[in-house]
Simulated assay, not measured.
Amino acid sequence: MDPRQAQPYAVPGHLPMASENQTVPPANIPDKMAGYESITTGGEEIYLPPPVYPAYNAEGGQPQPDQQWSIPSITEDIAKQALVKYASEHVTYSSRPAEEMVLKELKPYNMYRYRLQSFTESRSPEWKSEPYAGQTIDSSGFGNPPPPWEVPVDIPEMFEKNKKKVQVPNTASVKGCHGCTAMGKLPCSDCLQTGWVKCRTCDGRGSLSGDGSRCSHCMGNGKKSCGPCSGHGQKKCDVCQGHGQLYLYIQLTVKWENNNFEKVIEQQCGFPTQKLSKVTGKELFSDQQVQVFPILGFPDPRVNQISQQGIQAHWTQFGKTSRIIQQRHTVELIPVTEVHYQWKKKEHSYFVYGTENKVYAPEYPGKKCIIM
Rank of each mutant, 00 (worst) to 15 (best):
E89G: 12
P30C: 10
Y353R: 06
P26E: 06
Q117T: 07
K344P: 00
I74H: 12
S349M: 06
M219E: 15
L284W: 03
H329E: 14
E332R: 00
V292L: 01
V52Y: 03
I29N: 11
L48C: 08
D2T: 11
G222C: 03
I46M: 14
G61T: 10
V292Q: 05
H178W: 13
C240D: 07
Y112D: 09
D238T: 10
V336M: 07
D190C: 07
S139I: 04
K107Y: 06
V166S: 03
K235S: 08
N221K: 15
N21P: 00
R214H: 04
G184Q: 05
P50I: 02
T136Y: 13
S38F: 09
M101P: 00
Q312C: 02
S286H: 15
P25M: 09
T23F: 07
Y132D: 05
Q67P: 00
W315P: 00
C177G: 03
T201C: 09
E20S: 15
E99F: 02
I311S: 05
G143E: 09
K235C: 03
T23I: 15
Q317L: 06
A313D: 14
A361Q: 03
G184V: 04
A27G: 06
V52F: 05
L246C: 05
T321P: 01
T194G: 00
Y341V: 01
Q288H: 03
G319V: 04
V254P: 04
A58G: 15
V197T: 14
P26N: 04
Q291D: 12
T92N: 15
E99K: 12
K165L: 12
P156I: 14
C188Y: 00
P63F: 11
G310R: 07
Q327N: 11
G366D: 03
H217I: 09
P25S: 14
P26G: 04
L248I: 12
W343L: 04
Q67W: 01
L208G: 01
G143H: 13
G227T: 12
